[in-house]
Design a protein around this nucleic acid. Structure first.
Lengths: 181, 181
DNA sequence: ATGATTTTTTGATGTAGATCAAAGGGAATG
DNA sequence: CATTCCCTTTGATCTACATCAAAAAATCAT
């Protein structure tokens, strides 16, 4: 499943190469402000990014993006609204920025590449199904173990609080889960 | 949001009209067996369908489909595996069957319609985001109230157990939620 | 109808994880 | 080196919901 992601991302890069701009962010940099029209997707080449939003004042991690991953204000792009998501670099990172407007225009001219865009969306969808089922059926410990298998590199680079909110539990709970195993 | 769904479905019907087959199911009929290669999507014209799967022997409703809705074994279609989903008619229903293979072939020849397919997927995605956030942030009562607003017709036609599993709670809990308000 | 399933309700009890509160530990700042 | 700030851990308590069990109500079949 994960090498599938890699293959898809490479395809994405080769297809949209002409409209991708490489950008670097320092650790801690804000890549995209929330409450704005998030008009870009970011394809991660190195480093680590995180998207997050605020729910009753608390910071909730929506997504982590490691190399070959993609992050963006999907809500804004799909719904044409201001985005609730913020995006930040947790580590010094290199990304390829893909302006959504440019992508749409490009696809208008080259509909044969719509398929790639659709596949990216499919991947996002399947990813979300997995997380949904995790929330439905797995307890805190199981979700964390699953996460560790899925994002082994992330354990050292993301903070406890970020991971906890991503997994839908408090940081106290995650701390206890970690100790117990 | 819901008239958007309606518009999109109508577009889907007009685009893929030539490869859609109308089918009727009686109440209780199995539309698609689980553990098979789910090769179709169903566009609901009247009635009510449900997709479900088994998690440790218990029947979990994955999705309800009302008129203008779409239901199918998405996992199988996207992953090319046998599907875990069963689909049944909860009421006497009329649907338009769309064979996925035919759709792919059609899109191969008419890539300008890929966009519609992508939009359907986007809708599924946004739907799932909403359910995910419901599970994350809302309690049983809030999820049920949300559900009632979203699917007002469904309350009388789907059983307590079906709705409860869809919402990620036990039927006992849903029963108590109902009484309390 | 009458009995037999199936579905829903109600009650009693148990538990995972939230919440509240405070104490340690590290890393950065002057 | 001391101080501040942030992150993580630990403990005590509380609560929403699951689980188990059984009664009540509704639906179905003979």
């Amino acid at each position: 499943m994960d090498y599938l992601l890699e293959a898809l991302t490479k395809q994405l890069i080769s297809v949209f190469g002409s409209i991708l701009s490489p950008v670097s962010y320092k650790k801690g940099a804000v890549v995209q402000e929330g409450n704005s029209l998030g008009d870009s997707l970011f394809i991660v080449q190195s480093g680590l990014l995180r998207s997050y939003y605020f729910q009753n004042g608390t910071d909730i991690t929506a997504h982590f993006a490691v190399p070959f991953g993609i992050v963006g204000a999907v809500d804004s792009i799909l719904k044409q609204q201001r985005s609730i998501y913020w995006i930040e670099a947790l580590q010094c990172s290199e990304v390829l920025q893909l302006y959504y407007g440019q992508m749409e225009a490009f696809l208008e001219d080259n509909p044969e590449y719509e398929r790639v865009a659709r596949q990216v969306l499919q991947m996002l969808y399947l990813d979300l199904v997995e997380r949904f089922e995790g929330l439905m059926f797995l307890n805190a410990q199981e979700r964390y173990m699953h996460f560790c298998r899925r994002y082994p590199d992330l354990i050292q680079n993301a903070s406890l609080g970020h991971i906890a909110s991503y997994l839908g539990m408090t940081q106290e709970t995650l701390s206890r889960v970690r100790r117990s195993k």
